[in-house]
Design a protein around this nucleic acid. Structure first.
Lengths: 337, 337
DNA sequence: CGACTTTTGGGAAACGTTTTCTCAGGATGT
DNA sequence: ACATCCTGAGAAAACGTTTCCCAAAAGTCG
């Protein structure tokens, strides 16, 4: 079985034998340890090159106690927001020689804790996007996961860096925008009920109605998918509002499509806003007025925080805030007289 | 340093000590080996549970020679096609207890081989999407990567399963669709020059002009991004063609937007087709006529092939073909008289 | 009740590295 | 010429598992 003439991977021992030195020396050379005679080093390099030796990362990880990999837990990889985060984290991490292991919890929040734990065991740290996890579960889980970076969540225990988007503020801006255009009857097409960012939007809307007592705000159950937005079309069409705040761009696009099929024109008959400013938001017709989340900075900053905590367990753990800004496009206009 | 009272992770040894048995027995219990007395097994289970013991996957991987992880190399995670593949592969693999490590080559084809090699060393197999890699490089690389599954590429050496979309056929269908609508002057807005799937489209177009000698086909340099499509707007507007075949949906959407800004109406003034049928293609206004690539089957089938080869190195290696089908929406119509 | 088989669990090797410890030998200083 | 320092490389331990090999215990059969 240990037949080395057959297809066994070339190991450090093979290089050592070929260069006529010990394992240890080969290891030293491969890791740029300078305490080795340059003539021998050259011989080892040559042997390694001839055999095309590459250190086995698993053995390396075991000895070093680190994998140079981080895990990222997302609720749904088909969601553009998480795709974007994943991509940016991955690129930022790659720049520092780290890789990313993905764990898609498929929106099953009970899986998130398990997946995160498994990921953590395989990786040097975890980036956790768990919008639905209860706060209690999060508080319990977080300490076991360090180094940990949270996206859009925070914990009591302050040693975990968080990156949070101020969803409440963004929705207020969108609401204010509609009011300025003259809308008084406004509806919010909600997101997933237990989503943390949906709750933030609801809080923002509470403030919004305080600031503008003249508006009449109603809530229509929605979701965070195209289909959810699309299926809400009838409810939206008959609700009497002239301006619709939709949970996110994806649902807004579903709604946009549904309305167009019903002959309702946007923005002439109804103003629609999205949320996120995902890449395609500008490509709808009309372009979607939305709150732009500066998602690009988010991924790379997440990695920066992660790196700091990997290097130094007690690094500072600030909560980074991201302010969405209004992106006004064609889907909003003054209401019909 | 090996101070076990401080924050060291609980290992198999701790469980063994607590249960009053040896490492070996704990390992047997954890792996469901039935040759262990049920009373002792229960004791071990209890000890493991009390200590919250979870086997260290790195040690496990080293002993077992497998990581239960596969790598996936993609040229660009912001491309919806690869996002989709990644997601589906990830979900399918997760169902069998495998994880996915991502490697984004950022469109740098010289990186692809290196990334793939590194991924392979860390994983039990690699799914490779390398549309730009030269055939020679691919032939040289492929044997070193097994188990390997190729997306949209094939190799001579027949032990590598491939999943290929017949891009040539799809573009012929799109062309035929335009001809049937009455278009005679048609342009192809090309993709990246060295992209394998672009080459396939070009081959398909050769056949297309043979089948329809009456059409006048011209080529306009484009790309695979929104911006590339958008920037080609002027060239497209002034080329005299009435129907435009665009490399993919993303570029088509960029073009659509650019044309709309210039006051050119689609499909009244110009018919546009995309390619891929990405999720948003139906949400543009007008909806994009496109060749739908059955991308969902692709990811899960890729995993199935991978699993077969992980289990059994000499498993069959078929080339799976995917036929795009025409998806006719609002962006195509008869040309102006 | 003894010989022979079967269970069962421990010891030790294996997986492929890195790193500490140790010591040989050359250089240096006096 | 001798003691001392330093350099550099090998031996061995460590990382955390799984699994092979064996011996002891237990069971079976005549």
């Amino acid at each position: 079985m240990a037949d080395r003439s057959t297809r066994r991977r070339v190991g450090i021992g093979d290089v050592a034998a070929r260069a006529g030195v010990s394992h240890a020396t080969v290891s030293r050379v491969m890791n740029g340890n300078t305490t080795v005679n340059s003539a021998i080093a050259a011989r080892v390099q040559a042997a390694a090159a001839e055999l095309k030796y590459k250190p086995n990362p698993v053995g390396r990880s075991l000895a070093l106690g680190k994998t140079e990999t981080i895990g990222i837990v997302v609720p749904d990889l088909s969601n553009p927001t998480f795709q974007s985060i994943l991509r940016d984290v991955s690129i930022a991490a790659a720049r520092d020689g780290y890789r990313v292991l993905i764990a898609d919890s498929s929106e099953v929040s009970s899986e998130e804790a398990i997946l995160a734990g498994e990921a953590r065991r395989r990786c040097d740290g975890v980036v956790l996007c768990a919008p639905r996890m209860s706060q209690d579960d999060l508080e319990e889980l977080a300490p076991t996961l360090h180094p940990l970076v949270l996206i859009n969540r925070t914990t009591e225990h302050s040693s975990t860096p968080s990156l949070v988007v101020d969803y409440g503020h963004g929705i207020q801006q969108l609401g204010a925008h509609l009011v300025e255009l003259g809308h008084r009857r406004i509806a919010y097409l909600t997101g997933p009920e237990r989503s943390a960012s949906n709750v933030q939007r609801l809080r923002g809307l509470e403030k919004f109605v305080q600031d503008y007592p003249e508006v009449e705000l109603q809530f229509i159950p929605g979701g965070n998918t195209y289909d959810a937005g699309n299926e809400a079309s009838d409810a939206v069409a008959s609700c009497g509002a002239t301006g619709i705040l939709v949970f996110n761009d994806v649902a807004a696009m579903g709604l946009l499509h549904g309305l167009s099929e019903r002959g309702i024109r946007v923005p002439e008959d109804l103003s629609i806003t999205g949320y996120d400013d995902m890449p395609f938001a500008r490509y709808t017709m009309p372009g979607l007025t939305t709150a732009a989340v500066p998602i690009t900075q988010l991924g790379s900053l997440a990695w920066r925080r992660m790196r700091e905590h990997i290097k130094q367990a007690d690094a500072e753990s600030p909560t980074d805030h991201f302010e969405p800004h209004l992106e006004i496009r064609g889907s909003t206009a003054p209401p019909k007289a």
